[in-house]
């Protein structure tokens, strides 16, 4: 796969970047954000965010820290309450209800859970439950939420753990797993609920560099299988390779968006260029070689 972030090396042909096989295959977006905003006191964390994610699309949110990209992603699961605009998931308004007088109030638990049913979320800090084994983590919601019998749930959990390459670690407690393994269990836990959309909140930021690859590989596989994904990441290589759309946020607004090649190569936007330059400066010694692939 083409991977060129270094402006000094010869850039790959644009066609290679755009050759990513997947694209939106259904007309209506599965997630739709219109004019979403959020403020903490006087500080506008998110402003006028408009974004659509279609079936099987992979959207990567990039931007400097404090740009609001994590807040945006967490809003998509209503872990953060957005207070302006609307987020629709599969046509359902997320987190809010409009009452008779047109004012909005918090949606009830069941309604929120209905909307969240389509979502799987993976966090930066894994957030595994340390007192349960890997298997226990994956089975818990299957048993308690979906009401599946324990045997059945464990069978299903094992399949998903196998998918992330951890079938033989099923009986281990999280503390005995490496960060990369823990994050893969967390991915399995989300996948077991068969979500239509996977949200990743900086899934590799808490990992030692040598463990990043195994997690990205699992995510790449998911993308290839056609999972709809929204990923907040600092891994520009991953974004360049896997994303259909890259969205660059700064100071709570979407500054620019486009295909990876548009964003990483062709952009003239000064803030984005600065951001990418900073990234390259930090990671200069990796100096990725450009392999060609058809």
């Amino acid at each position: 796969m083409p991977l060129s972030l270094s402006p000094s090396t010869s850039p790959p042909a644009a066609s290679n970047l755009e050759a990513t096989p997947k694209g939106p295959d259904k007309a209506s977006p599965i997630i739709h954000l219109s004019a979403v905003g959020k403020r903490f006191g006087n500080h506008q964390v998110l402003a006028d965010i408009n974004l659509s994610v279609h079936h099987s699309e992979v959207v990567c949110l990039i931007g400097p820290s404090g740009s609001g990209k994590s807040t945006l992603l967490r809003s998509m699961a209503f872990l953060e309450e957005y207070d302006e605009g609307e987020i629709h998931i599969e046509g359902r308004l997320l987190g809010w209800e409009i009452d008779d007088r047109g004012r909005r109030k918090h949606a009830g638990r069941t309604r929120l859970n209905q909307a969240r049913r389509n979502l799987g979320i993976v966090f930066q800090q894994f957030n595994l439950w340390p007192h349960m084994t890997a298997l226990g983590n994956v089975t818990e919601a299957l048993v308690r939420v979906r009401g599946i019998k324990r045997n059945e749930a464990e069978k299903r959990a094992m399949e998903v753990l196998d998918k992330v390459g951890l079938a033989e670690k099923a009986k281990e407690y999280p503390a005995r797993l490496s960060g990369g393994q823990q994050q893969r269990v967390a991915i399995a836990r989300a996948l077991a609920m068969e979500p239509k959309i996977m949200l990743f909140d900086e899934p590799t930021s808490a990992l030692d560099p040598e463990l990043v690859g195994e997690v990205l590989a699992v995510m790449k596989q998911l993308a290839l299988e056609g999972m709809t994904m929204v990923v907040v990441t600092h891994e520009m290589g991953f974004a360049a390779q896997v994303a259909d759309t890259v969205v660059f946020l700064d100071q709570g607004s979407i500054v620019t968006r486009g295909t990876p090649s548009e964003v990483f190569r062709d952009t003239q936007h000064p803030r984005l260029r600065q951001f990418l330059q900073n990234y390259l400066d930090r990671n200069a010694f990796w100096h990725t070689t450009t392999e060609q692939e058809n």
Binding site: N113, F123, N127, L128, W129, H131, A141, R144, R189
Partner: peptide, 24 residues
Amino acid sequence: GQLEAGECLGLGRLQLMWRVQLPQ
């Protein structure tokens, strides 16, 4: 975060208290 993870999976508050918070 552990509660957020559970919430997103659809676990209720009481279930989270009983299954996640209490044992830990």
